[in-house]
Design a protein around this nucleic acid. Structure first.
Lengths: 163, 163
DNA sequence: TTGATACTGAGACTCAGTCTCAATACGAAC
DNA sequence: GTTCGTATTGAGACTGAGTCTCAGTATCAA
């Protein structure tokens, strides 16, 4: 984690940017989070910690960290962007449970290879990609897709990674 | 196209919904479009045609058509959802050009197969997925990723499919 | 210490999308 | 055809994530 913040500093400095106190506070929240965080989550967490950071600064910092490659940004269609640490962990894609909001990460090198093949086919230069599979996790199960109203208000399982 | 509108009607009726005039007008725009359309595009096109439909109705209809499986909805990160006809055409995914906004469709059955494998691995029941590759198309080329400011205002190629 | 520049915070603003509710259209029953 | 209940529409207010502006503050180099 200290290692991670150093890498964040390096990434910023490489672009002539500083790791100021507000930026560090935002970065630490995302780096240590056990789930994907939205700007509002970070805002709220810092407020509760007694170290509030302005809304604009949080948004600017998250965007900046994404540009530097230290955070990954995802949009699971809930009308807000969420972030997770990118440094020090391998690339992965996501399964998103429509029932409970759980996010499961997966790696499939063969898909990545096929993607390269596709982009070559179209003389396309890939910069990044977004591969998400939406459905129902093991716990929400096959019953969910039916008219099961219990799932309109997604239950939040304790030990899963929610957005 | 007449065939298509009939399928739209059937899909609605199967859910006890009617194909009213405003809904038909919205549906026809998306069915006949040569590119992905946002709600605002549809709104504007209908206004220009002299057959205006209320904003709320357009949004409601697009959502409804998606639910019925007649339209596909995509979000390419430009802050608005876009739609394309789904009936009468095979499933595909997209390459999105950051330079000019061009959208290239691709099909890769092998990726779909690997996806199934992934979901099985996690006991996940997939309902739909979103697979997008962002980068630069043949015309925007390898020069684009550099600090080429000419691409801040994406040029719009005449014969490509923009969102 | 000074000047130039980067950064922050507060709050106004934007804009896609949603909600509300009165008015209207439509299908079924009479 | 008329009536009644329900589905649908339109206008415009509202929401909420994200952006912008700009004055004030911090930081760096000289």
């Amino acid at each position: 984690m200290d290692r991670a913040i150093d890498k964040v500093r390096d990434a910023l400095q490489a672009r002539g940017l500083r790791l100021t106190k507000p930026r560090r506070l935002v970065a630490e929240k995302v780096l240590s989070a056990r789930r994907h965080l939205a700007a509002d989550d970070v805002l709220e967490m810092l407020r509760r910690d007694g170290t509030p950071v302005a809304r604009a600064t949080v948004y600017r910092t998250l965007e900046m960290m994404k540009e530097c490659g230290t955070f990954d940004e995802h949009d699971f269609g809930r009308g807000r962007k969420v972030y997770e640490r990118a440094i020090g962990r391998p690339h992965h894609d996501h399964l998103y449970c429509i029932g409970c909001g759980a996010i499961i990460e997966f790696q499939e090198p063969e898909i990545e290879r096929l993607q390269d093949q596709v982009t070559r086919r179209y003389h396309f230069i890939a910069m990044y990609h977004s591969h998400k599979i939406f459905g129902y996790c093991r716990r929400c199960g096959p019953k969910a897709p039916s008219g099961d109203k219990a799932h309109d208000e997604p239950p939040r399982h304790q030990d899963t990674k929610n957005d």
